[in-house]
């Protein structure tokens, strides 16, 4: 259906936003995999340079920051609910080194992963909010636990890579 002329000027750039959303969805879906900036920008059909700027303008942070926050957020969920070691969780959510994981976790959350886990266990179970709402309406957002097949492939944290500087 043809858009009326008076509406056209008011239409946001819907296609552009939908492309950026595809890149964000890729990070939300595949954060545990090796994801470099080329792959993420490619999902949106952007060159790296224009992608970083457009993504930041739309979502208020760089793709690199978004992916890193997503991984930290996933780690928080696993620390609260999963019977896994901190190192296992670090690798599961896409970091390749425990050092960078711990540093970023502390930077984001304010305490170390093990301190966080102890605190949450002392507090009791999770609040009774359906996981999807926590997933979609908090940023970064808790998600469902990854399926085990994610562990098969290489899990590389590129969030510290200078080459993939988002």
């Amino acid at each position: 259906m043809e858009t009326p002329r008076h509406m056209r000027a008011l239409m946001p750039d819907v296609e552009r936003l939908a492309s950026l959303r595809a890149a964000k969805d890729l990070m939300d879906h595949s954060y545990s995999e090796e994801l470099d900036l080329d792959a993420i920008a490619g999902e949106a059909g952007y060159s790296r340079f224009h992608f970083v700027r457009s993504f930041r303008d739309t979502y208020g942070r760089t793709p690199r920051a978004y992916l890193s926050e997503r991984r930290i957020e996933r780690a928080r969920e696993l620390l609260r609910t999963a019977n896994l070691t901190v190192t296992e969780i670090c690798l599961l959510v896409g970091f390749s080194s425990l050092g960078s994981f711990s540093a970023r976790f502390k930077e984001n959350v304010g305490v170390s992963p093990s301190e966080y886990r102890e605190r949450e266990i002392a507090r009791g179970g999770p609040p009774p909010i359906p996981g999807c709402f926590v997933l979609m309406w908090s940023t970064p957002t808790p998600q469902l636990r990854r399926s085990p097949r994610r562990q098969d492939g290489p899990i590389v944290d590129r969030t510290n890579s200078r080459r993939g500087e988002p």
């Binding site: 359906p130 997933l135 469902l144």
Partner: peptide, 25 residues
């Protein structure tokens, strides 16, 4: 799909988007 089915305390849940971009559990 944004999330494949996974076990949650209240059941099994997945998340997808419609053709406009709205998400559903």
């Amino acid at each position: 799909f944004l999330q494949e089915p996974a076990d949650r305390p209240y059941g099994v849940e997945a998340v997808f988007r419609d053709d406009s971009g709205n998400w559903f559990s």
